[in-house]
């Protein structure tokens, strides 16, 4: 249930994804230059980062079955 990766080469350091992520998953790296996936466990797969990224540098994968607690199953 996580964002897959952010392509460092494509990332233009605009920080929009850091602001856009409602879950504080994405932050800037230690050098404050590129966006990184800091807290992947909290990704809720809304896809807002992916939609907003002008460079299409962010990849969110949905084809996975995370260990979930569900109402039944």
């Amino acid at each position: 249930m996580t964002i897959d990766r952010i392509d460092r080469d494509l990332c233009n350091s605009c920080r929009l994804c850091v602001f856009t992520c409602p879950m504080d998953v994405i932050r800037m790296d230690a050098d404050n230059v590129k966006a990184i996936i800091a807290y992947p466990d909290d990704c809720m797969l809304c896809g807002l980062c992916m939609v907003d990224c002008e460079k299409n540098a962010i990849f969110v994968g949905a084809d996975r079955n995370p260990p979930l607690i569900t109402s039944w199953g």
Binding site: M1, M44, L45, C46, G47, G61, A62, T70
Partner: peptide, 20 residues
């Protein structure tokens, strides 16, 4: 159940189809 964390948000993005 196949994509339990796959939200309404991604379903409706133009990227949704490419994600699978």
């Amino acid at each position: 159940v196949d994509y339990p964390a796959y939200t309404m948000g991604m379903e409706w993005t133009e990227y949704g189809a490419s994600v699978g």
